[in-house]
Design a protein around this nucleic acid. Structure first.
Length: 529
RNA sequence: GGCUUCGUAGCUCAGCGGUUAGAGCGAACGACUCAUAAUCGUUAGGUCGUCGGUUCGAAUCCGACCGAAGCCA
């Protein structure tokens, strides 16, 4: 039986359609999920939308919209965006669903019965965008939120509190005994430092709100949105309605989240689970943000990239490749169109696309499009095979450690190696010299390297890699790392006349209709001025 | 202010106690011509933020400082 792997993203609230910054987490998590499937795991990949945020409710009312209709519409937009980006999530949860309402209420009930929920009055400045109270000291002039710069409101409510303080020691113990629980280590240090300052109980209900999930103990209060939202990870695994599914998938193997919400995932969430008597997730992996030309993306300020438009223009594979290759998981990365085009041209069109094209061109012209038979391997062939095998080892190690950008580079290293191999062995010259057998062996090895590269790149560029495999004449199948062997080559026919999966930029003599500009041309233009 | 990180070739990054500090991109020059004007090779001289310290030996450990980022409910 396959081992299971349960992976989640955070569930963004649905105030607006997602931009490219939001897409990073989805793409990165998708790459992990696809990699794990390929590595032989039974994967459950959950994402979703937080529908119960008070500021979503507020936004809907501002727009004069029916709240439920509005949040559904926004969630639909999210689903469409992820679909465009080829995100392979197995489930998409909306926190308005009955299954989630039951899960959230069950968690609340368990904490209550465990004596961790009590009533008290809370007073303080509240930011609706953060859904959090602030110390007056932390506010900007005019009691404005330091994050959103919008005015906070003074709230005084009698509501429920969660006895977080009770779990301080247990949390520290768990984090110390499980160094792998929080990735990367720098974040783990931050969490431990936070714990050192002591934990305060936090309020877990809102009396003033009508939108949200009612507490099971008082129908006039709704469950605090973070308490509610975090529970989605349980709901998605089948809690509490499907104990057999829950048994299978829980504990979660990794929660992928952004650096802004670690407090909720590394402190509140484990404590909530302890209180509910549920095992903790194995890992929380915290990623950085994608900036746009060095600036934080912000829809309201007009600094953002629309992922759907970007995909329409350049394809999901190209956008995914850029995000994964250019943005290191644990730190912030930058997006610029210039860097995007440079990456695409250099790595995808020139190195990978052209390697496929030059190899298949010779195979078609001289071997009737069939995989040439393999002859006795030479030292060059063996060296290529060894380099590919080494790249695979490194790739796996890096993937497991969330170094997605370096893992991807390992796969591209195979492509570079194969281009070098062709330059060294010169199959076109061999053909001229009537050394057809040797030329065939060389092309066989080049195709093998391509097959491996396409396999390792599949999590990042599922569609392009599928096309590459098809053009290599590999029957449609789910790539399987566990059965990937060097020298697998039943006679197969390459797909004649297929369109290039990774076309060259327009203006460079490549496929028409594409909007990539050619760097060489660009340079000439500049000189003329 | 406290804490946590980061600062390595023009750019993006790897190295994290041990021979002359690496890769990719970009640049220059050369080669080749199977190919998506692509590819391959060579070169490009970065005091590894600064100043001290530990060590036989430090980008790599310690301290201070400068600059950047994050966290402090």
């Amino acid at each position: 039986m396959k081992p299971k792997f349960y992976v989640t993203t955070a569930i963004p609230y649905v105030n607006a359609k997602p931009h490219l910054g939001h897409s990073y987490e989805m793409v990165a998590t998708d790459v992990i999920a696809r990699y794990k499937r390929m590595a032989g795991f039974d994967v459950w990949f959950l994402t979703g939308a937080d529908m119960n945020s008070l500021n979503t409710e507020r936004k809907a009312r501002e727009l004069g919209r029916d709240v439920r209709e509005y949040v559904e519409e926004m969630a639909d937009a999210m689903v469409q965006t992820w679909k465009a980006l080829r995100i392979s999530n197995d489930d998409f949860i909306r926190t308005t669903e009955p299954r989630h309402r039951r899960a959230a209420q069950e968690c609340f009930r368990r904490a209550y019965e465990n004596g961790d929920i009590y009533e008290a009055t809370y007073e303080g400045f509240y930011c609706y965008s953060c859904e959090a109270y602030y110390d007056p000291d932390d506010l900007l002039e005019g009691n404005r939120c330091p994050v959103h710069q919008s005015p906070c409101e003074w709230l005084a409510e009698r509501n429920y509190f969660f006895r977080l303080s009770r779990y301080e020691a247990a949390l520290r113990k768990h984090i110390e005994e499980h160094p792998e629980f929080i990735y990367p280590e720098s974040r783990r240090n931050e969490v431990l430092a936070f714990l050192d300052r002591g934990l305060k109980d936090f309020s877990v209900s809102r009396r003033s709100a009508r939108w949200g999930i009612p507490t099971p103990t008082d129908p006039n209060q709704v469950i605090y949105v973070w308490f509610d939202a975090l529970v989605n990870y349980l709901t998605g695994a089948g809690f509490p309605d499907h104990p057999e599914a829950f048994q299978k998938w829980w504990p979660c193997d990794v929660h992928v989240i952004g650096k802004d919400i670690w407090r909720f995932h590394c402190i509140y969430w484990p404590a909530m689970l302890m209180s509910a008597g549920i095992e903790l997730p194995k890992k929380v992996a915290i990623h950085g943000f994608v900036t746009l030309g060095g600036e934080k993306m912000s829809k309201s300020r007009g600094i953002y990239v629309d992922p759907v438009a970007a995909v329409r223009e350049y394809g999901a594979d190209a956008i995914r490749y850029y995000l994964v290759r250019e943005v290191p998981f644990e730190t912030d990365g930058d997006f610029t169109w210039e860097a995007f085009v440079a990456r695409y041209n250099a790595d995808l069109a020139n190195d990978l696309g052209n390697l496929l094209n030059r190899t298949l061109n010779l195979v078609r012209r001289h071997f009737g499009g069939k995989t040439p038979p393999i002859g006795e391997p030479t030292a060059e062939d063996v060296a290529l095979a060894k380099a590919v095998l080494r790249a695979r080892e490194e790739y796996c190690r890096l993937m497991e450690g969330f170094s997605l950008h370096l893992a991807t580079d390992q796969a591209m290293g195979i492509v570079r190696e194969a281009n070098r191999y062709l330059a060294d062995t010169e199959p076109w010259r061999l053909l001229r010299d009537e050394r057809r057998d040797r030329a065939g062996t060389v092309l066989y090895h080049a195709m093998e390297a391509l097959r491996w590269a396409a396999t390792l790149l599949t999590p990042v560029m599922p569609d392009a890699c599928q096309q590459i495999r098809a053009q290599l004449g590999i029957p449609e199948e789910t790539p399987d790392l566990t059965r990937l062997e060097w020298g697998w080559a039943p006679s197969r026919e390459s797909d004649r006349g297929g369109t290039p999966p990774l076309p060259a930029p327009a203006g460079s003599g490549g496929a028409a209709g594409r909007r990539f500009f050619c760097p060489h041309k660009e340079r000439e233009d500049r000189r003329e001025r």
